[in-house]
Amino acid sequence: MSFMFESIHHIQLAAPKGSEEAARKFFGGILGFKEIEKPDLLKARGGVWFGFGAYQIHIGIEEPFSPVKKAHPGFSVKNLESLKLHLKHHDIPFIEDDKLPGTNRIYVSDPFGNRMEILEWI
């Protein structure tokens, strides 16, 4: 082949109309992602974008809205135990899972019910 995929640029999650502030509180305030200004041509669609490192999370508005329950982004972290304490401090529930050998991992839902996997390789 003459082409090659280089990386994932962003992951899109859906949210209900008018949920931008809840997204900012969760993704920016609690998880610590940096908000990225959307291009002017896309601002009218609503939603909000965040980034960390070379990666982006785009929260897009979807009507009617239905959260994603099975398909999900997976985030690799350092110091999962510290993140778990941080989530508990903010009353964010998570589910621990030990079914992937070589990892500690949890599942957490964003404020809109979208499932996210967070794991640490051991």
Score class of each variant (00 low, 15 high):
I11P: 04
F50S: 07
F75R: 06
I30R: 09
M1Y: 09
S7A: 12
K70A: 12
G60D: 08
S66L: 15
N114E: 08
E37P: 02
N114S: 04
E120G: 09
E117Q: 05
L85P: 11
E62K: 14
K38H: 07
I95R: 10
K38D: 10
A15T: 11
P111F: 07
E81Y: 09
N104P: 00
A22R: 13
K43M: 09
L42M: 15
V68D: 15
L41W: 03
E21C: 00
Y55S: 13
Y55A: 12
W121K: 12
K34H: 13
G102D: 04
K99E: 15
G18K: 01
F33M: 15
G32Q: 09
D110E: 11
I57D: 09
I61D: 14
G113Y: 01
A44W: 10
I106W: 11
P101Q: 07
A15Y: 10
V77L: 07
D98M: 00
S109F: 10
E6K: 14
E62Q: 15
E20C: 10
F5A: 13
S76F: 13
G29L: 07
G60Q: 12
I57N: 07
I122W: 08
E96T: 08
F33D: 04
N114V: 02
P64A: 09
A22P: 11
K88G: 06
P73V: 02
E20Q: 08
E63M: 11
V68S: 15
E37M: 12
K84A: 02
S109W: 09
G46C: 09
I8E: 12
E35W: 01
E81C: 10
K70C: 10
R105C: 03
E63L: 07
E62N: 14
I11G: 00
I92H: 13
W121T: 11
F65N: 03
G28N: 03
D91E: 15
V77Q: 04
P93Q: 07
Q56T: 05
L13D: 05
L42F: 12
H10S: 08
G74M: 09
G113N: 07
G113D: 00
I30K: 09
M1N: 13
L31Q: 07
I122V: 13
I106R: 09
L87Q: 09
Q56E: 14
D110I: 00
K70R: 10
S76P: 00
F75T: 01
H89A: 15
E35I: 00
D40N: 14
K70L: 11
A23N: 03
F27N: 01
M1K: 02
K78H: 02
R115C: 01
P67Y: 03
W121S: 05
F112V: 10
P16V: 06
